[in-house]
Simulated assay, not measured.
Amino acid sequence: MAEFSRIADPAARSVALFVEAGKVISHPRCSNCHPADGVPRQGMDQHPHVPTVSGGAEGHGTPGLPCTSCHRAANTPTVGATVRSIPGNPKWALAPAEMAWVGKSLGSICEQLKDRQRNGGKSLAELQHHMAEDALVGWGWNPGPGLEPVPGTQKAFGELIQAWIDTGAHCPAPY
């Protein structure tokens, strides 16, 4: 994080820190579970989930096809020509629609993260804890065979988020 200390203006440093954290936040491994339409995305190209599913009213699937039908407490290896796995985590679910990121600019996501009406009611401290400690967020760095992890580590990501908060939690332009 020393490279950010060279940015003298705290607001500019804060934006630069968030842009760096945005490499994780906007990575498909994370944003695939933050759609506005209730349809999870898959893969680095963010195609709609196959088979066709919906997150349902609570983000855990529909009554006849809950997410846990396929997504278990841990990744499930699949059989085939390539090594792959079905993602798994005890907390597997879609983010609520008000927390949608798919198709949004990094600046818009930043403003949304600071808005308690659109971030699950979290304070900035709670948001940092979620990003730095939550096991489902942490899954992004260990998604299993055949799945690209998000860059860096959860620890470094948590430190970036904390530094962003400490410098005023400024956001890049929403465009």
Rank of each mutant, 00 (worst) to 15 (best):
L106S: 02
R118K: 15
G158L: 08
A21N: 04
P48K: 03
I7Y: 10
H71A: 04
L136P: 01
V79A: 12
R84I: 02
P35S: 04
E111F: 02
A135T: 15
N89L: 08
P51D: 06
P48C: 06
Q46Y: 01
K122G: 05
E98A: 10
G120Y: 04
A156I: 02
G146A: 06
T68D: 11
A11M: 03
H47E: 09
H130R: 05
A74L: 09
R72V: 06
W164K: 06
I7T: 09
N119M: 05
E98P: 13
V15L: 01
A11N: 07
A74C: 01
S31F: 04
P35V: 03
D115Y: 00
S105Y: 05
P66N: 09
K122A: 13
A8R: 10
G103A: 08
I161R: 00
H27W: 09
H60K: 13
G140F: 04
A93K: 14
F157H: 12
N119D: 07
P66A: 11
H130C: 04
A16E: 06
R84G: 12
P35F: 08
L65K: 04
G55M: 11
E3K: 13
F157R: 00
E159K: 06
P40W: 09
R29T: 13
Q112R: 12
A97G: 02
I25E: 12
D134N: 14
H60M: 09
S108L: 04
D115V: 03
T52P: 13
W139D: 05
K91H: 14
P28C: 03
E98H: 11
V19A: 13
W139L: 14
A95E: 09
A169V: 10
T62R: 02
G107R: 01
P143V: 07
T76Q: 11
P10K: 00
E126A: 14
S5I: 10
T167K: 01
L136M: 14
G103K: 03
P48R: 07
C171I: 12
A21P: 11
G80F: 12
D37R: 00
E133C: 00
V79Y: 12
D37Q: 01
W141R: 01
T78L: 14
S108C: 01
A81P: 10
P40A: 13
C110F: 03
A93D: 06
A36E: 09
G61V: 09
T62F: 02
N75I: 04
E133D: 10
M1Q: 12
G120P: 08
A169W: 09
P10A: 04
H130Q: 11
L127W: 10
G22P: 11
K122M: 15
R13C: 07
E20D: 15
N75F: 03
L136C: 01
K104A: 11
N89P: 10
V150D: 07
A95Y: 07
A125C: 02
S123G: 07
R13K: 11
Q112L: 15
E148D: 11
P51M: 05
C30Q: 07
S26M: 15
F157K: 00
N89A: 14
P145M: 08
T153L: 08
A81E: 12
G121M: 03
V19Q: 15
A11K: 13
Q42Y: 00
M44W: 01
